[in-house]
């Protein structure tokens, strides 16, 4: 069902519409939170917090002022950032990770391990860089959409993504991918 229809139903007090909205977006919100936080329990907590906020705010949500999914992503990211702040753990910039700490190339044998290596590398990015990587490469958002969600200029999104890819490249080029990757040359 179209999200605009579901939102309209919710705004007229239809609780089954809210249930349908939850089930339509729960995977997206949970998986985004999981990629941000690397923890299933915390991702579940974020899922709850996001939809409690959605439930509270739906009555005042005006679809003419913006897309529901953009708003949902913003709420999700805000709760992920709050959850990370609660941990009060330092995020270590990948730049500071020494080569000796990285996995030896010989340990890579198949695609599954490479995906884990890449995911861990993304996990070691600082919060700002990790956020743009997930918004771009998991949620497939444009720079303008990312800028709106993060409330920063498009130029900031561009420079963060550039830095993120540069950082990931420095680490991952020491651990070459052993399976074919589709290359797009324009």
């Amino acid at each position: 069902m179209d999200s605009a229809d579901l939102i309209h139903r919710c705004q007229t007090g239809d609780e089954e519409g809210f249930a349908a909205l939850f089930h339509q977006y729960k995977n997206l919100v949970y998986r985004t939170a999981y990629l941000m936080l690397d923890d299933a329990g915390e991702a579940e907590d974020v899922l709850q917090e996001v939809f409690v906020q959605v439930h509270r705010s739906l009555l005042t949500f005006d679809p003419l002022k913006g897309s529901f999914t953009t708003w949902l992503y913003r709420v999700t990211m805000n709760h992920c950032l709050s959850q990370r702040r609660k941990r009060r753990l330092p995020t270590i910039s990948l730049d500071k990770v020494s080569a000796a700490a990285l996995t030896e190339p010989q340990s890579l044998v198949n695609r599954v391990e490479d995906e884990e290596v890449v995911r861990q590398a993304v996990g070691r990015l600082n919060t700002k860089l990790r956020t743009v990587v997930i918004l771009r490469y998991y949620l497939d958002l444009s720079y303008a959409e990312m800028a709106e969600i993060l409330n920063v200029p498009t130029g900031t999104v561009k420079s963060r993504l550039d830095r993120a890819l540069k950082t990931l490249r420095q680490e991952l080029e020491m651990v070459p991918c052993t399976w074919p990757v589709k290359e797009v040359v324009k």
């Binding site: 990629l35 490479d114 995906e115 884990e116 890449v118 995911r119 993304v122 990587v133 997930i134 490469y137 998991y138 890819l165 990931l168 991952l172 991918c177 990757v181 589709k182 290359e183 797009v184």
Partner: peptide
């Protein structure tokens, strides 16, 4: 990019 996208 493809590698990162695939992994996520």
């Amino acid at each position: 990019q493809s590698r990162v996208r695939q992994s996520l």
